[in-house]
Nucleic acid binder design. Structure first.
Lengths: 235, 235
DNA sequence: ATATACTTTATTGTATACAATATTGCTGCA
DNA sequence: TGCAGCAATATTGTATACAATAAAGTATAT
């Protein structure tokens, strides 16, 4: 820790910064599912005390990006096939309607923002930075929820997209290409046109496409030690 | 704090106990919206340190039962009319489908549990304990989500019902009677019969009824000081 | 050599101490 | 009286210290 406090500006919310940093690392697949997140370890990385690390981990646990096991610690979440399926079922339930609502409300500046997202997504893909592209793709969906101006449902969608990142990390089929940007482009067009029906349908089929690029059949290889699976504690 | 550790069993998760205690108090309307929740104050009540109180308050903030303002503290949430509307819109989107799913999966023991809930609800109403009746009513809905066996959506519904408690505290119209138990009874019957269509429709109309017993037009009286509303800080 | 009991180490859970910020009350002045 | 500025107080934000638990290692006995 910097003893002289020379390079610690600390202008705002420290905890949130740690949350954002960890979330980004998970979204960009730099932290794999089931990775142990030790409190001291993270604290040293970001030069903060365990107090704020713990708060950050609890935040991430709430949106199920990490799982906290009492007296064991925090791990990057590792959704089961069933959980993975549920995440996309929930998205299929919420997002089409949200897209419809966005189509009815979007302003020109909203459209600009969406197009900007797509452009960045393209750039990341061209640069071969798949992690960043995936993250941007998720933020595209979140942006639509914001435009729809439904805060409550928007929050749900945010957590679903966060978890989607983990699901994709675990269950993505190599064979299928990551060609979402075309779907995103069509969606933006429908929203720009105010075509509610089309926006809803495009979002729905987009999610179906995403789903079909996943293979939930077999559980992914676990990095967890066997002891975890064998001992039958009730905690 | 008990210096001799005589009466501190502390067998499990202390934080969760504080969370549950506060949540129950809010659900039963013993803690009114906008009430300040000081950390020391709560810590003394439950004989725990501020560390666990803070963790508990953060948990409750996640599900939006309390609102935390940086450097100001935690307050029981006070949903705006808009937020209140959104909560019920989201419920209308999620719960009917969940009821349908519950109807397709419910076991006899599930039905027992639901009937038990209704009985307790009746008892609480007869005893004039409206707070407890309201809480039980909410847990009835949560139980249906559990039966539907959709964990992800179930969590969303849980948070929505928690917030509904606040919405009802703020926007309930005196005129309309709290006569939900009849609707709940019919719903259980449909679920017991495995009548998916009916369960979905009953849930939908039940939520419509609930909604029509609320009046979102005027904002409730705020205990908050005006300074809060007048100063335009970006934090 | 394996298994088991015990010891040691590492990590998390909780409490407390200190720092930063906001709130309150006072004082003086117009 | 009313208000501006400062002092005092209270409350939250963060760091650290101590306690409890789990993990790892070691020695011994079978």
């Amino acid at each position: 820790m910097s003893l002289l406090h020379i390079s610690t500006p600390k202008p705002k919310d420290v905890t949130q910064k740690v949350v954002d940093a960890l979330a980004l690392a998970i979204h960009e697949h730099r932290l794999a599912p089931a990775t142990k997140l030790g409190e001291d370890e993270i604290g040293e990385i970001y030069n903060v005390s365990r107090t704020v690390v713990r708060a950050a981990l609890q935040s991430l646990a709430h949106i199920q990006l990490v799982e906290i096991q009492r007296n064991k610690g925090a791990f990057v979440a590792s959704p089961t096939p069933r959980e993975a399926r549920e995440v996309f079922e929930a998205r299929a339930l919420l997002e089409p309607r949200t897209a419809r609502s966005a189509a009815s409300r979007a302003t020109p500046s909203d459209i600009e923002i969406l197009k900007d997202h797509i452009a960045k997504e393209h750039a990341a893909l061209d640069a071969g930075d798949n992690g960043r592209a995936l993250n941007l793709s998720g933020r595209f969906h979140i942006e639509i929820a914001r435009i729809a101006d439904q805060d409550t449902i928007g929050r749900f969608i945010e957590t679903l997209i966060a978890r989607s990142s983990l699901v994709i990390a675990l269950y993505w089929r190599r064979e299928s290409a990551l060609c979402e940007s075309h779907a995103h482009h069509a969606l933006v067009q429908a929203i720009a046109d105010g075509d509610e029906q089309n926006a809803e349908e495009l979002m729905q089929s987009h999610l179906v496409d995403l789903n079909s690029a996943l293979d939930f059949r077999d559980r992914p290889a676990q990095t967890l030690n066997l002891r975890e699976l064998l001992q039958a504690t009730d905690q």
